[in-house]
Amino acid sequence: MISVSGFLGQIFAIALALLLAPLLSGWVGQCRAWLQSRTAPPLLLPYYMLHKLFHKDVVLAHGASSLFRAAPFIVFGCMVLACAIIPSLSTDLPLAPAADAIALVGVFGLARIFISLAAMDVGTSFGSLGGRREMLVGFLAEPALLMVIFTLAMIAQSTSVATIVETLAHREFVIFPSLAFAGIAFTMVSLAENARVPVDNPATHLELTMIHEAMILEYSGRHLALIEWASSLKLYAYSCLGLAFFFPWGIAERDNFMALLAAIPLLLFKLAIGGFLLAGIETVSAKMRIFRAPEFLGTAFLLAVLGLLVRLMLESRV
């Protein structure tokens, strides 16, 4: 069943994700600094951070349960699994049947639940505040993400991520207004899910505004390293998913090893551009008050539903 190239492709995808994810975070940070006329941090800063954190001792809060200790591993595992089933390089992934697009959303949801629970576990006020906010964002972002996926699934007549990407990559050039709607909605959801600027600020340490940072205040050492790495992986996963859905050209197919190799520089190129655009969005938009986040995500949901409706109305009967 599992072809050699498929197996290799899967290994490649996971390895690349693990390696590239911190680089992508670093690249976005650098672009941001550059766009904001600041001195850019080194590109490899996230690697130094991870290296430093892995060599530090873990300090656990009093009353931290086993959940608190297990959460980083679970979150990290979820993100690796997500990266494994997202066709970043090739659509021939042996792990792909493990989860379709809906389950993928579930995997992200699982990670969110555990990190929120862990944040509340210690019982500090910031932890529970962050956890609550994270759940609020997730509660609004997930339906929007699902709607985006439904739109795409209707185009491909399948909920498997690999099949969707395969269909989208091999169609002739047709303007899908629904895809445009879905694309904008997906971008908005990604911004919210990855704690990016209009909703959250990954670089902030101002307690009252933060979401993601508030949850992980109590973590240290390798736990923190895993969580940071998982965040990078999440960004990477969302970026790859977006690229695969909306710019699927150049992703390799079944039994095509050369195409797989060719896909790597292309992916790097696309990620570089995507990261730059992300930094651009973060630069031009201002952080919104947390109470405005529901409206932001509501708009994303609206757009996704519109995409679905437009798909039904304009494009369905062919």
Partner: peptide, 22 residues
């Protein structure tokens, strides 16, 4: 699969969607 829709119609659909969005 959507080959039956001519390009001009796709454009009109696109504009119509933009109008709805606006």
């Amino acid at each position: 699969m959507n080959a039956a829709i001519p390009f001009s119609a796709q454009l009109i659909n696109l504009f119509a969607s933009v109008i709805l969005l606006l």
